[in-house]
Every structure is written in C-alpha cells, then in structure tokens.
C-alpha cells in the first residue's frame, strides 16, 4: 500500500489513472500544469486576434458567419482551459496578469499577421491542424480536467480545420491571382505552423518531467512528423506546393523529410520580437481595461 503523498501520486501515474484536482500531487506537477494549461488558454484567446481582424472584411455573408462561429469557439476553448487551470488553485486574475506582464507566454504562431483572406484559410488548415495533432495526444494527458477539456476541444476543432482547408481549396482553384494568394499564405504559415510543436525534445526545457508525469505522451518531433505526413498530401490534392525545396518522401521510413527549422527565429518571436507581439498584448490590455466596469459591476 502506498503511504506517502508521492507514493500515491506515482502509483496512479504508473497505472495510467488520471489525477483529479483533490488528489495528492507534487508541487512541481501542479506548477508545470498551471503553466502549460494557462499558456494553452492564452493561446486560444490571443489566437482570436489575427482572425478577428478579418470579420468585417470576409468576402461573403457565409464566410463571415463561419468565421464568427470559429472565433467564438476559440473564446470558448480559452474558457474551458482557464477553468481547468483554476482547479489547480490559480485564479483567472493571476493568469491574465501573467499574460499581460509577459511572465506567461502564448503560442508563438499568433505573433504573425493575417495579411490576406487566404491567411484565414491557412490558419484554419495549418495552425488549427497542428493544434489538433497536439491536442489529440493531450486527450490522454494525466490530469483529468485538462484531458476532459481536450476531448471537448478536439470535437470542435475539426470544423475549424475543414473551413480553413475549404478556403484554401477554393482559392487554389480560383483565378491565377487567388491561387497565388493561397500559395503565398501557405509559404508564410508553413514554418510557423511546424514550429508550434516546439523545439526538438532534446533541447526542450520541460519535456523530461512532462513525459515522466504522462502530461505528455509523444515527443515534439514525433508530433511534428505526424502533422507533416498528413499535410503534404492535403497540399498536393488542392494543387499547392509545400514551400520546402528539400521536401522528399523517404520510402524506407515511410515519412517525409524536411529542411531544418529556423529556431533562432522561433526564440526571437516567442521572446517578444515577432511581427505582432506588441500589438497582440496591447490589444488584450486595452479590451481588458475597457471591460473593467463589467467585472466591477458583477461584484456589486
């Protein structure tokens, strides 16, 4: 019989049993999850900005309704995740403050701008597509509330990816200018989407503990490869080209090989020096501040 707190926790993890909020857990496990879940939540919320930018300029009423529904979902995903993080004993205010002071991060991919309508296609198809690969794994993560939030989110993401892919397919099959826009969006979003999985686990700071605790069950590189293998075929079907001269299929491994990614750029962008970092946080602060009276009214 396990006796100490650590024993109970370790035994549950070993037996693949989910950890629930009131179960004993090591302080480092709790802190790791607080960081990961809150940053996941921030990504959902900040991720609304590049897309929200296109609501008023959507090319048809159909496209506009779809985009609104998608962005509404992202807000919802942020809420599921903030709630899951709160079960660990951190408040919403603390998390927002960590985001706004730069102590907590969000996915580096959202620091790139959505320049044309084709970017909305590329974001749904590639950014949501990469997120799905990661989130499918997280449905089996060891912390119960996080895993359950992931199940809900994955169900909803499928629409997000398909609406993006539909936009890309339509534009790729449109006029030469539209085709060019689709290819250009793919060119710009390809590498940032691949970098969403994070650096190779060898240099990833938090990976080792995350594996031990079964927060994470597949390596960053393995997840990235999964995404590449799926996406290359989807690219070819709609007549676009993967923007990588070194892309080749290795018949022996059954996987695609790609050029190394520019991790200097990744670190630069995630540390604050991407094309839109300042704008994203300023926007968040502005609306958070403008909503202050609502929060205060709620407490009366």
């Amino acid at each position: 019989m396990p006796t100490t707190t650590t024993d109970i926790f370790t035994e549950k993890i070993e037996r693949d049993l989910a950890i629930e909020p009131r179960d004993p857990m090591p302080e480092e496990y709790r802190r790791h999850l607080m960081r990961q879940i809150s940053q996941h939540a921030h990504s959902e919320v900040i991720g609304m900005q590049p897309e929200g930018n296109w609501i008023t300029r959507a090319p048809s009423l159909r496209a506009k309704m779809i985009l609104l529904a998608k962005i509404q979902d992202e807000g919802g995903h942020g809420l599921y995740l903030y709630s899951a993080a709160e079960t660990l004993g951190i408040s919403r205010e603390e998390m927002i403050e960590q985001l706004q002071t730069g102590k907590a991060r969000y996915s580096s991919v959202f620091n790139y701008p959505a320049l044309t309508w084709a970017d909305i296609g590329a974001i749904g198809w590639l950014v949501d597509g990469a997120a799905i690969v990661n989130q499918v794994m997280l449905q089996r993560t060891s912390y119960g509330p996080y895993a359950r939030a992931m199940v809900r989110i994955c169900k909803e993401e499928s629409f997000h990816q398909r609406q993006g892919y539909e936009i890309m397919a339509k534009m790729a099959a449109g006029t030469p200018e539209q085709h060019e826009m689709a290819q250009d969006a793919l060119n710009r979003w390809w590498a940032p989407a691949l970098m969403m999985f994070g650096p190779s686990d060898a240099e990833s700071l938090h990976s080792k503990a995350a594996f031990q605790w079964k927060i994470k069950r597949e390596s960053n590189d393995a997840l990235r490869q999964k995404f590449i293998d799926k996406t290359v075929q989807q690219t070819e079907v709609i007549g676009l080209k993967v923007p990588d001269p070194n892309l080749r299929f290795n018949a022996e491994t059954g996987h695609y090989e790609t050029s190394p990614l520019n991790w200097d750029e990744f670190h630069r962008v995630i540390n604050g020096d991407g094309p839109c970092n300042r704008q994203r946080l300023e926007h968040h602060r502005k609306f958070h501040e403008e909503g202050r009276w609502v929060r205060e009214a709620c407490q009366c």
Binding site: F159, Q161, Q163, Y165, E166, A169, Q233, Q234, I238
Partner: peptide, 11 residues
C-alpha cells in the same frame, strides 16, 4: 458542412 476536395485524406 464543408466540402473536402476529392482525395484529401486525414482531414
């Protein structure tokens, strides 16, 4: 609701 182009897999 969305039309997936013929032949596209895993989406």
């Amino acid at each position: 609701f969305y039309q997936v182009p013929a032949g596209a897999k895993n989406i």
